[in-house]
Design a protein around this nucleic acid. Structure first.
Lengths: 107, 107
DNA sequence: GTTGTTGTTCGACAGTTATAAAACTGTAGT
DNA sequence: ACTACAGTTTTATAACTGTCGAACAACAAC
């Protein structure tokens, strides 16, 4: 069944590192999950739901953007965020690939 | 068709955080890959192949152990490390699950 | 224009961490 | 016992980072 014509979406070494880094902070991971819980998520709601300052929220959003884990869209007064699931999938795949095949060379 | 033998291997919240943290450092990720490149890997070879002190290697191994990403086995004078691929798979699955995607049951 | 709301950026601070170097523990073979 | 090698723990340091708060910028409505 797996015609698998979807985008491969590979990650460069740098992107892989940025994603890993972005996912490593529990708060940032929670923010990402919150954004992913809806198709889009306005930023000021994040500020309401998490006990951190808006400066901190903004900082985390910047990191998630840098890693390509979310995309932002200005909607008049507000900014809406959306999870880029391809990036998550690509990171997951790359992770498995790097751990994938044990080489023949065993000491 | 996979017969679903064992290892549901779910991760607790804490384990999930530890794995994410452990994977976030490029050097540590590289060490994990090196260990995974063979079925087992003696520690002193890691010290040779990476330009870091053995104290630093030991520190990283401790973190990887804490995250459940490797297991260690004393072999006389040496210590052999082995990648716990179930943990990687469990982390990957949990990541996809949290983002509302079905994990790749067999990829 | 002014005012209010939303988000960014800029110090500053506290906690974390990757690293080395030295001291220490353990293990193997003299 | 001693020597050599393998790995851990301790100590110190430099760099990084999550956080706040305040200043700033952008936008909407007045």
């Amino acid at each position: 069944m797996s015609t698998r014509t979807v985008t491969p979406t590979t990650l460069t070494t740098r992107e892989f590192e940025l994603v890993a880094k972005a996912l490593s902070d529990p708060r940032r991971m929670a923010l990402l999950e919150a954004i992913g819980s809806a198709t889009t998520f306005p930023c000021h709601q994040l500020c309401e739901q998490f006990p951190v300052s808006k400066g901190t929220i903004s900082h985390h959003m910047k990191e998630l953007l840098r890693a390509g884990l979310i995309k932002a869209r200005r909607e008049g007064q507000y900014i809406h965020y959306e999870v880029r699931r391809e990036t998550i999938a690509a990171y997951s795949n790359e992770l498995m690939r790097r751990m994938g095949q044990p080489g023949p060379a065993d000491a």
